[in-house]
Design a protein around this nucleic acid. Sequence first.
DNA 1: CGCCATCTTGACACGTATCAACAGGCGTGG
DNA 2: CCACGCCTGTTGATACGTGTCAAGATGGCG
Lengths: 245, 245
Amino acid sequence: MTRLDIHNSDVPVLCRSCEVRHKGMCGALAPEQLLALAGHTQTVRHKAGTELLADDAEITSYANVMRGVVKLSKMLEDGRQQLVGLQFAPDFLGRLYGSQNALAAEAASDVEICRIPKAALERLVKEYPELEHKLMEQTLRELDEARDWMVTLGRKTAAEKVASFLMLIATHIDPVSRAQAERRALTRTRFDLPLSRADIADFLGLTIETVSRQMTQLRKDGVIEIVNARSIVVPDLARLEARCG
Amino acid sequence: MTRLDIHNSDVPVLCRSCEVRHKGMCGALAPEQLLALAGHTQTVRHKAGTELLADDAEITSYANVMRGVVKLSKMLEDGRQQLVGLQFAPDFLGRLYGSQNALAAEAASDVEICRIPKAALERLVKEYPELEHKLMEQTLRELDEARDWMVTLGRKTAAEKVASFLMLIATHIDPVSRAQAERRALTRTRFDLPLSRADIADFLGLTIETVSRQMTQLRKDGVIEIVNARSIVVPDLARLEARCG
DNA sequence: CGCCATCTTGACACGTATCAACAGGCGTGG
DNA sequence: CCACGCCTGTTGATACGTGTCAAGATGGCG
């Protein structure tokens, strides 16, 4: 279970300071493999709002989210938009084996990502099945999350949608794991929203106005406190959970 | 590209008559590996409506859809239901590496599935990375489809949802591939709906009545002909596509 | 032939969208 | 340092789409 990490000297310098090294796909790699990977990677910072992957663009590189939140979105021709996922560190970014993106990725907050050229990663995946296995596990998790969200989009009321969104953020944004969040269910929790009202609306299939009204309602009901538009306090996560439908 | 398949004698008897052998995950396997697999598999037929996997049940086996359509659904505690996917032959069925199902699977039509015990498949996956790769490709396809459907659920009108559903069935149910369907876009197409109005409503996040009204509207607009409730003719797929939003 | 499930159609209610006005925060420039 | 303007979010009035409830119509099957 515990990884032998005393011999850090084998680990590439770049990776040594990487905070998500053990959690993302890199956790699958031995020092020597990490070295093969690190030879191609490049860590880049982007400001909130930067487009990281354009829809329909050719895929030339993949990436790992190291810090911050990335939003994935799709658009209809007439401009209607739907967010189809949020990626937190240490999530993988990009459609593996795809030639073209089927969605757009944009930095929701300031982010730091670790890029690797498409060909380089695909070569490594072929060489180290353990790497593909890690990516498979994340893909399966994302599929589970996408399907959970389909229930939210298709069958929940506006009030339940907003509560579900807050719950999602509360359990993902914090460095504490989801499991910990569950244990601390009764504890006062505070977090910042990585999305604007417009983004939240696009994530929930609602309008800005409806999101705003439902937030106000949750505040009036004492389920949340709105420190400011971007900062929320949940006195009791269990009560919020009860609003999720 | 072409697989050497002249020496059928090496292929297990069970698999030799399998119509989806080359298309699903089994396409990854050499005769010898197929033999290892076939020793554990069991082909079963089920009538429409049979529950194939119960939500929250422990996973003991995986399966491949060989004939028919399987619907995947999730339910909220109060009974509201959402279909989160449809599986056609030769799709894989089951949450790989999961211990519990997060969704229910039910035969939408009469189906034939090829079961394999969880442990047996997981052993094979470990042994043959090529097998995990095939499953990865399907998982990625399913994730793409789930995200496409999120746009439908979150941002389309009832009319567009129904058109999108008909389009989905038209391009999946037929033995002709999606690519072929696109080429034959202007051709008259006829197909049977594998779902009842209630299922369609659950797939689209609508009510039965709204689905029915929108179908009627499409008929009145000449976009579809309703032979009977379960059988549809689309004179011009391009016109239907134009209704999808 | 008749029953029962499924589907369709109608009238009305309700939730969410739309349109519009206003409030607050924040950076810019005077 | 304050004033202004812009961007984001909030609140209100009203419209519209879809849900709900109820009553037929249709069709498959004993």
